[in-house]
Amino acid sequence: MLKYFLDNDLVKYSEKEITDWKEAIAESCQLLLEKEIIDQTYVEEIIRCVEEHGPYIVIVPEVAMPHSSEDSEGVFGTAISFTKMKQPIQFESKDEEKSAVLFFTLAAKNTEEHMENIQNLSELLMTDGLIESLVATNSIEDYQAVMQEYKL
């Protein structure tokens, strides 16, 4: 799946000094916006969902999976993009502090594709040591080295 991100030009290493989670979500959506897979209403919908439901998008330490419902009006195709932030982004939660530096942003046109995306991404993230290896990357070249190491 790492190859999917690279082959589809869906890998981004953010150069911005982002500390606000809303700005981080917007940044993680940029590649999908540029490719016209989503529009700005989807970005706003993700932010609104996190405001309403808390940081449900932080699925494991260091990893966020920004997404909204599969029937969003602002989604025109199915894709997942990968964005690595310069520093961890803090999300406030009633129970605990959550942070993420790796953002896998999902867009899907229908329920089936949405669930398939989540399943594929979950399987990828269960690869032993992969999250730590990706957190340690700082460039496309580093990313390609991890891709070769894990053959994913």
Rank of each mutant, 00 (worst) to 15 (best):
M1I: 05
K3W: 03
K3I: 09
K3T: 13
Y4H: 12
L6P: 05
L6H: 13
L6Y: 14
D9P: 01
D9H: 08
L10F: 12
V11L: 06
S14E: 12
S14I: 14
K16L: 14
I18V: 14
W21G: 00
K22H: 09
K22T: 03
E23V: 14
S28F: 07
S28H: 03
Q30C: 01
E36D: 13
V43S: 06
E44M: 02
I46V: 15
I46W: 15
R48W: 14
C49N: 15
E52D: 10
H53G: 04
G54K: 00
P55E: 13
I57A: 04
I57Q: 02
I59K: 08
P61F: 10
E62G: 00
E62S: 06
V63Y: 09
V63R: 03
A64T: 03
V75S: 02
V75H: 03
F76A: 07
F76R: 08
F76V: 06
F76C: 07
F82Y: 12
F82V: 02
M85W: 08
K86T: 05
P88K: 07
Q90L: 02
Q90A: 07
Q90T: 04
E92Y: 06
S93W: 08
E96P: 05
K98Q: 15
L102V: 02
F103T: 00
T105P: 08
T105H: 05
L106F: 14
L106Q: 05
K109M: 12
N110Y: 12
T111M: 15
T111F: 15
E112V: 10
E116I: 10
N117H: 13
I118L: 14
N120E: 15
L121A: 03
E123W: 02
L124A: 11
L125E: 04
M126D: 02
M126N: 14
M126E: 12
T127H: 00
D128W: 01
D128P: 07
G129Y: 01
E132M: 08
L134G: 01
V135Y: 09
T137D: 11
T137Q: 06
N138E: 13
I140C: 00
Y143Q: 12
Y143L: 01
Q144A: 05
V146H: 07
V146F: 10
Q148C: 03
Y150W: 07
K151Y: 02
